Structures are given as C-alpha cells and as structure tokens.
Simulated scan of single mutants.
Amino acid sequence: MIEIDGSHGSGGGQVLRSSLALSALTQKPFTLENIRAGRKNPGLAAQHLTCVRATAELTNARMQGAELGSTKLIFEPRGFAAEAHEFDCGTAGSVTLILQSLLPALAFANKEINVKLVGGTTVAWSPPANYFEQVLFPTLARMGLHATLEVKKWGWYPKGGGVIEVKVKPASGLKAIDLTERGALERANAEIVCSNLPPHVSERMKARALQLAFENGSKNFQTKTFEAPSDDQGALFFLTAQHANALAGFSALGERGKPAEKLVEETFAAFELFEKSGACVDEHLGDQLIPFLALARGESCLRALVTSHLLTNAWVCEQFLEIKFAIKGKENEVGLVTVKGVDF
C-alpha cells in the first residue's frame, strides 16, 4: 500500500487526482491522508468526490473514506472496466479536472473507450474544454496518445450541466518528447464563446482582439465566434498559439460586471508574458504532461514554468513509478524538466 501525504507541495486536489490516475493505471492501492490540507476548506469537496467515484467505477475499486469532507482515502483498484462510462458532477465542478484522473488509464486500455462527463466545461481554476481539445490532446498525439473531445453542451458556474464526450484510443506505448525550444510563432487563433448573452458582448471581444493582434504584429490571426448552448450565461475568450515545436493556450472567463474587453486584455497579457519567458510550453501544459513523460519510452525534456502543481505531479509519479525527475530551476521560474520514462 502506497502512502501519500496530501499536504505535500501545493496541498490541493492535484495530489488526489494524480494519485487516482496512477493507481488506476498501475493497479497499485494507496492511502491518502491530509487531503487538501493546504486549502481553506480541507477534505473532499463534491468535485473531488466525483473524481474518486469515477476512477473507482473505471477500476472496480474498493474504497474507504469516499465521502464529503473526508481527509483520508483508501483506494484499492481491482481491474479495469473497459466499457463506456458517464459521470455527473451534479454541480459546476470541472469536467476537465475529472478527466485528468481518468486519462492515463483510458490511454492504456485494451480498446477504445468513450466517456461522457457532465458538469462545468468552462469554470474558474481549471483548464476549459477548449484547452484539452486544442493544446493538450494534440501534444499527446505527438507522443502516441490519440484522444478526441467534443463539447455537446457548455457548463458555466454556477449551474453547470455542461456535457463533453471523450474518446480515447488505446496506446501501444508513448514516445519521449523534446519540448525545450518552442521555435517561431507561426499563428495565433482565438475562440469567442458566449452563452445567452447580448450579441454586443462577442462583438466587443472580437474588435478588441483584432486591435491587440494588430498592435502586437501577430500574423495570420483569426477569430471564431459562436453561441454555445447552455442552461446558464457565460463568456470565454480562448487563444491558441502555435509555434514551430509547441502549442500553448491562454484564456479568461467572463463574470458579472467585468467588461468584455477585459477578457481579451487578460488573455493577451498572459500570452505576451509567455512569449517573453523563454518557456517552451505554457504552465498548464507543463504540469499536465508530467505523468505522460513518466510513462514514455526514453528521455523526455521540457522547458516550463516550475509551478507547485508541476512539482507535486512529479513527486506523486515518483511514489508510484520507479523514476526520478531532474528539475533545474526555482519554483515560479522557468526551468528544465528531464525524466527517463518507464516505457509502460
């Protein structure tokens, strides 16, 4: 039984999600204590409990402590249910964070598995569904993991109710990847997503985006606007930057009282900061790739912002797999991450 201290590193839900993902894949049981000890309200919240139950259904697991507010979880996987699954947060909990817990095991299943997730598709403190579709999945495809994501219905805070459908093809193995130099910027595209809002909201976002793109000298900049079906109101500005050797994604969410132009300005500010940083991948891609680098065949390298999530993910991988990450760089600075994968 692997023992994990949930207060390690960022002390949040990342320890739980990474532990569930690697336990499901390796079939190694674990005990997690001090769950979300670094948060104002520690223990399992509704979204985290959905992660636990979804991974348990996928692996026929036995559990102890799988209840709201629990600060200790014992998780024992007992195989793999290679069939279609549907999981509902019941809230506006992030469906992409739930997918983080499932994706490694789905990637190494013996057949293609379809998963439907219901909840928040575009909510704070988590990557929007667009990010998985346009940044994470294309990058993983270079390593040999092929997955698709389709948003059937958009879910915003507080109502949620969004629906995504994910298909993951079985991977025979993952190839190592070198993401140390991103190369020249080839193009930048933006998506403007609005649900149940007046037309002027998306029009103002598009106008501001085109203005900033022109001022920054961005070539081949294109915008796509669409009305997203949803039970709630919401707005998202999402920018994808394609470099010669890497993809990066940046976004901002609307909220009551926040000018439409502000979403665009926040997103472009994050994009410009990244362009000046010397990192090859954005900070979210950096930490999300960590488990897959650990599972790949050969040595992988990436240059990324060393965040607490990245460090936590690397540490959890080291608890489940016989690997050691070499991380050169201080936390909150751009550093070099190297690991020789286990060729799972």
Score class of each variant (00 low, 15 high):
residue 139 T to F: 00
residue 1 M to T: 12
residue 317 C to F: 05
residue 316 V to L: 07
residue 134 Q to A: 12
residue 9 G to M: 08
residue 111 K to V: 09
residue 200 H to Q: 15
residue 1 M to L: 10
residue 182 R to N: 08
residue 154 W to V: 11
residue 221 F to C: 08
residue 91 T to A: 06
residue 340 K to V: 10
residue 124 A to G: 07
residue 226 F to S: 15
residue 205 M to C: 13
residue 123 V to N: 06
residue 270 A to G: 10
residue 43 G to N: 10
residue 48 H to C: 08
residue 327 I to C: 10
residue 10 S to E: 15
residue 43 G to I: 08
residue 195 S to T: 11
residue 333 E to W: 07
residue 288 Q to G: 00
residue 266 E to M: 15
residue 21 A to C: 11
residue 126 S to C: 07
residue 297 R to L: 01
residue 314 A to R: 03
residue 224 K to W: 12
residue 274 F to S: 05
residue 289 L to R: 00
residue 33 E to K: 14
residue 50 T to A: 15
residue 275 E to I: 05
residue 304 A to V: 08
residue 269 A to I: 13
residue 242 Q to H: 14
residue 52 V to L: 04
residue 137 F to S: 00
residue 341 G to F: 00
residue 127 P to W: 02
residue 231 D to V: 12
residue 192 I to G: 06
residue 72 K to F: 09
residue 259 P to L: 12
residue 194 C to R: 11
residue 3 E to Q: 11
residue 225 T to V: 15
residue 78 R to N: 15
residue 19 S to Y: 06
residue 192 I to M: 12
residue 84 A to Q: 14
residue 197 L to H: 09
residue 129 A to W: 02
residue 42 P to W: 04
residue 172 S to N: 11
residue 72 K to P: 00
residue 33 E to W: 04
residue 299 E to R: 01
residue 125 W to A: 13
residue 201 V to D: 07
residue 203 E to R: 15
residue 340 K to E: 09
residue 144 G to L: 04
residue 243 H to W: 11
residue 49 L to S: 04
residue 314 A to H: 06
residue 233 Q to C: 12
residue 125 W to E: 15
residue 34 N to L: 07
residue 276 K to Y: 06
residue 265 E to Y: 10
residue 74 I to S: 12
residue 105 A to W: 01
residue 317 C to A: 11
residue 120 G to L: 07
residue 266 E to I: 14
residue 237 F to T: 03
residue 161 G to K: 08
residue 250 F to N: 03
residue 275 E to C: 15
residue 262 K to V: 13
residue 280 C to L: 07
residue 21 A to R: 02
residue 66 A to E: 12
residue 60 N to D: 14
residue 11 G to N: 08
residue 52 V to R: 01
residue 91 T to S: 12
residue 314 A to I: 10
residue 211 Q to R: 14
residue 40 K to S: 13
residue 321 L to Y: 06
residue 89 C to R: 07
residue 307 T to D: 03
residue 82 A to V: 13
residue 84 A to N: 15
residue 77 P to N: 08
residue 229 P to H: 10
residue 43 G to F: 05
residue 306 V to A: 05
residue 175 K to E: 11
residue 172 S to L: 07
residue 24 A to Q: 03
residue 195 S to L: 02
residue 23 S to Y: 03
residue 272 E to G: 15
residue 135 V to W: 00
residue 257 G to E: 12
residue 182 R to F: 04
residue 72 K to Y: 09
residue 235 A to I: 09
residue 330 K to M: 08
residue 102 L to F: 02
residue 128 P to Y: 06
residue 99 L to P: 03
residue 332 N to Q: 14
residue 289 L to Q: 00
residue 247 L to E: 02
residue 11 G to M: 09
residue 157 Y to E: 13
residue 58 L to P: 06
residue 338 T to R: 14
residue 169 K to E: 02
residue 167 K to V: 09
residue 18 S to Y: 01
residue 37 A to Q: 09
residue 51 C to L: 05
residue 83 E to S: 13
residue 119 G to T: 04
residue 262 K to C: 11
residue 121 T to G: 10
residue 190 A to E: 05
residue 181 E to D: 14
